[in-house]
């Protein structure tokens, strides 16, 4: 639109900048806090600019952990494993079932469809206690499987892939059949590559979902070597008696948010497209 109104454009930018400032302020303060030493963070008023302790804090936290926690390096690794297992596991499982639902006519299709539909409605938080008991019975406490499996089967991804597959023109399947592709060839040669945008978007969403899991890992891991970085924050803040060690906590917080933030920003285009187009 040709509308040359510098004033209103200026106002828009001003509002946006203010919004961005407010939204990013907590994150900026985290970086600031992570770069000072403990003593400075107890003096009021707290600093608004960067300090010089960043690398010290980083080294200390990564290698030794905070208080009696495991070293952050290990936690980051745990988080990564968990996030990847959840993301990849969910994607694989959901791709398969979505494929079956959309392209095959089998006996219990509707039953199955409803089953997925119901699981869609039950976030882990809701059925946390009984799920815990099931996992305990299966002896999967303190394992990566126990950590991830219960989170893998949520139906959101299955639904999204179903949407995606439904939007693939039928003619593509027909052309592939004429070209002599069997069901598996069609799946791998055509369907997966054609759906790669939604797969990528799903990966971003699920990676973050996995990385940011809190309540479930909190319950299921008692071994401190299985702790994820996101959980550790809480433990650190409760390293009671004294005041919280803010410089280490904030460094941990920073480390905990860098990977997901990088993933979101790096894959922003795909993510935004996948999110807003498929979830509607």
């Amino acid at each position: 639109m040709i509308e040359n109104r510098p004033v209103s454009t200026f106002i828009s930018h001003a509002v946006l900048l203010a919004g961005v400032a407010i939204v990013l302020f907590p994150i900026w303060i985290t970086i600031v806090a992570a770069s000072h030493d403990a003593a400075r963070l107890l003096q009021v008023p707290l600093p608004l600019g960067l300090g010089d302790q960043f690398y010290e804090n980083l080294k200390e936290v990564i290698g030794k952990g905070v208080g009696n926690t495991a070293p952050l390096g290990l936690m980051l690794f745990n988080s990564l494993v968990m996030a990847l297992m959840i993301a990849i596991g969910k994607i694989v499982v959901s791709l398969l079932s979505a494929y079956a639902i959309v392209y095959f006519d089998f006996k219990f299709r509707m039953l199955f469809f409803w089953m997925i539909f119901i699981t869609l409605m039950l976030p882990v938080e809701v059925r946390i206690l009984p799920t815990y008991e099931v996992v305990a019975k299966l002896g999967m406490l303190n394992t990566y499987w126990g950590l991830t499996l219960p989170l893998i089967a949520s139906a959101t991804a299955t639904f999204m892939f179903r949407q995606t597959f439904l939007s693939v023109p039928d003619e593509l399947l027909e052309a592939a059949r004429i070209d002599g592709a069997g069901p598996m060839q069609f799946f791998f040669d055509i369907l997966i590559p054609v759906s790669r945008t939604s797969i990528a978007a799903m990966f971003v969403i699920l990676f973050i979902y996995g990385w940011n899991q809190y309540l479930w890992p909190l319950l299921i891991t008692t071994d401190k070597n299985m702790v994820t970085i996101v959980m550790s924050i809480k433990t650190m803040m409760e390293a009671l008696e004294e005041l919280p060690k803010w410089h280490h906590i904030m460094m941990t917080a920073l480390l905990a948010m860098i990977p997901p933030v990088l993933v979101v920003i790096g894959m922003q285009k795909l993510f935004v497209k996948g999110l807003t187009e498929t979830e509607k």
Partner: peptide, 11 residues
């Protein structure tokens, strides 16, 4: 077969 919308594999 040649389809109306061509059905070329987009990728």
């Amino acid at each position: 077969m040649v389809f109306q919308n061509y059905a070329l594999y987009p990728h």
